[in-house]
């Protein structure tokens, strides 16, 4: 399968602190990959480093996307190439409306957004949120849905989801799962999909709704082992992260 994302020996610091070391991660088109790991192990940092966050200084290694080295590119350039991210805790942006951003994303792709705009918002139960300042006073579940709505608007080829299942209630998790499956084109055979996904979860809750192909465990800023998502989750449940990593070894 065609390789979409290729992270090689990536070491990243924020300020003086090294937060990622020698990370290797390859994801092919059509694949859905899950990243497990305890709080603070570097999962969110890895996603933000791939997205191109300014704070995340690459010390060595590189990130290739669609065969192109994107390590030195700005966030918006990466976004335009097709990297998209749903934030776990996005900032509230006062004065900028959710609808405004969604319109921007849709117009970039196809000129006219108006018809599609409300249809998409309705699907994610966010019709009343289009005129609201983005993330300002949104509940946990509303944030997840709003992040997915924007991603659907963007339609990126590579989709990173940071804890899409945390703080989401039973009713909303269905909606969230559906939206992710739509984004990842789960209705198509893997070979026919144009997208790939990287899902960060520490509970694994989302796996009841979204099928993943592979999983990795992250610990202390590096990616340790890979395997079948359910097997790995089971190992983590019984042996803990350290136990899991010891058993399977570093990749």
């Amino acid at each position: 399968m065609e390789r979409l994302l290729d992270v090689r020996d990536l070491t990243v610091s924020v300020g003086e602190k090294r937060i990622l070391r020698d990370v290797n991660l390859q994801i092919a088109k059509g694949e859905t990959v899950v990243l497990f790991g305890p709080n603070g192990c570097g999962k969110t940092s890895l996603l933000k480093a791939i997205m191109g966050g300014l704070e995340y200084r690459v010390e060595s290694g590189n990130i290739r996307f669609k065969g192109k080295d994107v390590t030195g590119l700005a966030i918006d350039e990466r976004a335009r190439l097709g990297i998209g991210m749903a934030y776990q805790r996005p900032p509230a942006v006062r004065g900028v409306k959710l609808g405004e951003i969604l319109r921007f994303c849709l117009e970039k792709r196809r000129g006219n957004a108006e018809e599609e705009l409300s249809g998409l918002a309705r699907k994610l139960n966010l019709l009343d949120f289009l005129e609201r300042d983005i993330n300002l006073g949104f509940s946990g579940g509303e944030i997840k849905r709003s992040e997915l709505l924007q991603l659907i608007g963007q339609s990126p080829a590579f989709i990173m989801l940071d804890e899409p299942d945390s703080g989401v209630d039973l009713v909303n998790i269905h909606l969230v799962g559906q939206a992710i499956n739509e984004l990842l084109e789960k209705d198509k055979a893997a070979a026919k999909r144009g997208t790939a996904g990287l899902i960060v979860t520490h509970s694994g809750y989302i796996l009841d709704y979204v099928n993943a192909d592979r999983a990795f465990v992250m610990l202390d800023g590096t990616v340790y082992c890979s395997g079948n998502p359910r097997d790995l989750l089971e190992d983590i449940r019984t042996k803990g992260y350290e136990g899991c990593v010891q058993c399977r070894g570093q990749i």
Binding site: G53, I75, D76, V93, I101, F104, C105, K108
Partner: peptide, 10 residues
């Protein structure tokens, strides 16, 4: 940065 991640320039 958040808005840039949606494709807006700085």
């Amino acid at each position: 940065e958040y808005l840039m991640a949606r494709g807006l320039t700085s």
